[in-house]
Write a protein that binds this DNA or RNA. Structure first.
Length: 841
RNA sequence: GCGGAUGUGGCGGAAUGGUAGACGCUACAGACUUAAAAUCUGUUGUCCGUAAGGGCGUGCGGGUUCGAGUCCCGCCAUCCGCACCA
């Protein structure tokens, strides 16, 4: 085949990309009267190179965006950069570059990479969170939330790396040591800024109910994260009426089964006692050291320290319970104290057995109502209250209500709703983030930076030669006068968690005025995002914070949007087989060769081991660089591969054979377009196929079932190739181009132009999605399955709508059917019109 | 431990309770070619059979139904999330 007959992406891709750009094809018109569609993929962190996972993510969004355009929508499909964060500081330390320069270079590189894939993005709205034009407005929003009382400052414990002199996130603490320095991590108390997300706990929970286009899995994860539970908050008083210990319980019905009270190591009562009790102090220290990883907790023994204190049981003041400091009680949930009811809580039982505390049964599900409780397995099921005075015989729910009512009447407690969700700590002791716009004054305290002094811009002249936050040691940056009293004061040197940056970028995309974060009317025109696509790893934090931030803005009257993302889709990862040599070192796919089932290392000829199929990662060397494959196959083949075969929510395995197949299909589609014949005559069967495929592909794209849409396009391609020349066939070729154009846009434009004489020119990107003729969706012949006792014995092709009696007669006339009946007695015949006949013997 | 998802050919996967395996990949055979690539035509769940045809097949065991990959009950396996949450 000559070169002219081939589609050449190396020429075509760039040509069409620049034509789209020249014509501003994908710039969203905010004055449009068309229905709007806001399609958004989670914006990337500018790490330096596009990852194949990004390609999959953005290809999905792109297909939807292009499809929406073709179906008459004004589409907003923007792109930006989640540009603050630690990797830039790490690079600064390792390579002696400025985080800003490093980040901006990365953005330039990645933008070029994205452009090569031909995404239909409105680049005029591009934003980077590290630029003052963005984070300045974020500071303004932060101060509005502060003014509304949704921001506060409190002492909070952090993981402190004493060598790097920095705060570490939990996942940066490995075996109690800093991930970078390897130094044992200390717990430090720092004054930190918090956002009152807990004020919105109930709203965020009930709001999940309206998100019917979110995956159940994500809604459930958020529900669990918010962790609503209802119970009783009550006081166990110290004898003599001198204060007491507040506890929260979800099982007030088991009050009479109490045998001890346990408090957290950080509980004020424990702290106070420890001041004069070195052995308790030592115990508390040990509790704090305990790891926070899953494995640590699983293996951690329940341990306690008897304080010698006792408290009165609220329902019987003569009954005194011992108070322990226990390693399993968390200070930051509930009140930091619990009462233990060992018979009906496994953790309490473990503890009671260890310290030989009483175990009293108060719930029974059988005849076993004795107060003595044997064994090491707590009973947590439903049952009837026993050994509990007036509550005996009640159900658990009745008893709960009774105790809460009594507590409220008598004033020692009240019903309470408790959430697992904690307020969002947003302070980061780092340079490369949004400066928190607060000034600390000795006289006035924390003073917001006045509006006219925003943005608070990061100083450029910083260095990373020594550990710690460069903002802290900058000679002048933090030194300012107090806006309130004019005395010398000090800027806050902490910066905001980068999750704040990503909590409102979708609003800024919709509207980008210079003088304010967004224009309300314009933002409300586009929002909520109609389709949001990204990785499931953001199921909780990013998506919860963005929901909170939007609600907080709504709460203070800045925008009338409750939920930012109407529909959410979480796509699977791109995976690839891994390879190792005999010593276990990872090998990249191009270092190995396969012969049958044997893998060998190409250079040395030594055997290689083909390992698990895993998410592409640099450390396992099973990566494929998007630039390389675009160089080799062109953007369209890569895009097609991203959409083929695997359902988008599942993992997609990269394979050489797979991309080769896509490349062949791109060429096959190209060849088809040269087969427009100008012939006359209709081909009813092909027309029918064409219209069925139009309907399916549209529905599949709307459902993001790209693999099915791809399969239907293959189906149509097969049908076209088999059909004889006709006007119908020419029309089918035009149709298949339109249907595949969101997926392989460069090829589609190239072919569209080639056929332009017939079609009147114009870009296929601006063409309308083909209309479905409903009349052609119906077959006029149907194939009927003939079953005998539910087993298929024959099939018959008959006219659609044949009456039941005729179907029965035809079925019985079949030799195969008669053979299967074999003279047996027919009990009844089930007929499903146009589908099947089942003869029951 | 708690919660959730998934399980279909050699592989990725299709299938409103109604013909299981669409479509793609792989493999094999053939055509074209001096040859290769590309392309085209077949075959490709499994077992029995020359064939016609038939048996068995959607992780395992039950159930509902004229009919179950699909619905119900109970297991098993894998993956994911959360995790001392009172």
């Amino acid at each position: 085949m000559s070169n002219e007959e081939r589609f050449n992406p190396h020429v075509a891709d760039a040509r069409w990309q620049s034509i789209w750009e020249e014509r501003s094809s994908f710039v969203a018109d905010e004055n449009s009267t068309k229905p709007r569609a806001y399609v958004l993929e989670m914006f990337p962190y500018p790490s330096g190179r596009i990852h194949i996972g990004h390609v999959r993510n953005y290809t999905m969004g792109d297909v939807l965006a292009r499809y929406k355009r073709m179906t008459g929508h004004e589409v907003l499909h923007p792109m930006g950069w989640d540009a603050f964060g630690m990797p830039a500081e790490n690079a600064a330390m390792e390579k002696n570059v400025h985080p800003g320069g490093w980040t901006r270079d990365n953005i330039a590189n990645m933008k070029a990479q994205l452009k090569r894939l031909g995404f239909a993005i409105d680049w005029t709205r591009e934003l980077a969170t590290c630029e003052p034009e963005y984070y300045g407005h974020e500071q303004a929003l932060f101060l509005k939330l502060y003014a509304a009382g949704l921001v506060y400052r409190k002492e909070s414990a952090v993981n402190w790396d004493p060598v790097d002199m920095t705060v570490l996130a939990n996942e940066q603490v490995i075996d109690g040591k800093g991930w970078r320095s390897g130094a044992p991590v200390e717990r430090r108390k720092l004054s930190q800024w918090f956002l009152k997300i807990t004020d919105f706990a109930d709203e965020l929970l009930t709001g999940l109910g309206s998100l019917d286009q979110w995956p159940d899995k994500v809604r459930l994860m958020q529900e669990n994260w918010i962790g609503k539970s209802q119970g009783l908050k009550c006081t166990f008083g110290f004898p003599g009426g001198n204060g007491g210990i507040d506890v929260f319980t979800t099982r007030p019905d088991t009050m009479f089964g109490a045998s001890f009270v346990a408090i957290a190591a950080d509980h004020p009562v424990a702290q106070k006692l420890a001041a004069h009790a070195p052995d308790l102090q030592a115990f508390i220290e040990e509790c704090r050291k305990g790891g926070t990883t899953a494995a640590d907790i699983e293996t951690a023994e329940k341990r306690g320290f008897d304080t010698g204190l006792t408290v009165e049981h609220p329902l019987d003041a003569s009954w005194h319970l011992p108070v322990y400091v226990a390693n399993f009680v968390l200070m930051d949930y509930g009140t930091g104290a619990v009462f233990g009811c060992p018979a009906h809580d496994q953790r309490d039982l473990d503890f009671a057995r260890k310290y030989a505390l009483p175990v009293t049964r108060v719930v029974a599900d059988s005849d076993l109502t004795d107060s003595a409780f044997a064994g090491d397995v707590a009973f947590t099921g439903p049952g009837t209250i026993v050994n509990s005075h007036w509550m005996n015989g009640m159900t658990i729910d009745q008893a709960k209500a009774d105790v809460i009512a009594r507590a409220q009447a008598e004033g020692w407690g009240s019903g309470k709703t408790q959430y697992r969700l904690r307020d969002w700590g947003v302070s980061r002791q780092r340079y490369w983030g949004t400066p928190i716009p607060i000034i600390h004054c000795q006289t006035c305290g924390a003073v917001p930076v006045p509006d006219d002094q925003l943005p608070v811009i990061l100083p450029e002249d910083v260095n990373f030669d020594i550990p710690g936050n460069p903002l802290d040691r900058h000679p002048s940056w933090s030194k300012v006068d107090c806006p309130s009293c004019g005395q010398p004061a000090c800027r806050e040197t902490d910066t905001l968690d980068t999750f704040v940056d990503s909590s409102w970028y979708f609003i800024r995309f919709a509207s980008q005025p210079h003088d304010k974060p967004f224009d309300r009317t314009l933002a409300e025109k586009w929002l909520p995002v109609d389709q949001y696509i990204g990785g499931v790893e953001h199921a909780i934090l990013h998506l919860l914070y963005a929901r909170f931030w939007t609600r907080a803005l709504s709460h203070i009257g800045l925008i009338d949007v409750k939920e930012p993302f109407a529909s959410l889709f979480t796509q699977g990862m791109v995976t690839h087989q891994t390879y190792q040599d005999a010593k276990g070192s990872w090998l990249s796919p191009d270092q190995v060769r396969r012969e049958g089932d044997i893998w060998t290392i190409i250079d040395s000829g030594e055997p290689a081991v083909a390992g698990r199929i895993e998410k592409m990662s640099k450390s396992k060397k099973n990566v494929v660089d998007p630039d390389d494959i675009v160089d080799q196959y062109g953007a369209d083949a890569v895009r097609w591969f991203m959409l083929s075969d695997s359902p988008p929510e599942r993992d997609l395995e990269w394979s050489e054979a797979g991309i080769e197949g896509c490349w062949r299909f791109v060429q096959r589609l190209w060849r088809l377009t040269s087969q427009v014949s100008g012939a006359d005559g209709a081909d009813k069967a092909l027309d029918r196929k064409t219209h069925q495929v139009i309907a399916r592909v549209g529905a599949d794209i709307e459902a993001l079932a790209f693999n099915k849409a791809v399969a239907k396009i293959y189906d149509l391609a097969n049908a076209i190739e088999k059909a004889a020349p006709s006007a119908s066939r020419d029309s089918a070729i035009h149709t298949i181009l339109l249907l595949s154009s969101p997926m392989v846009p460069h090829l589609a434009e190239e072919a569209w132009t080639k056929l332009g004489a017939e079609l009147g020119g114009g870009l296929i990107a601006d063409a309308a999605w083909p209309a479905v003729d409903p009349a052609l969706l119906e077959e006029d012949e149907v194939t009927i399955a003939i079953q005998v006792r539910g087993k298929l014995r024959d099939t018959l092709t008959v006219a659609k709508g044949l009456p039941q009696a005729d179907l029965e007669a035809l079925a019985l006339a079949s030799q195969k059917v008669q053979h299967a009946i074999d003279g047996g007695e027919i009990k009844k015949i089930i007929v499903v019109p146009d589908r099947l006949v089942n003869i029951v013997l």
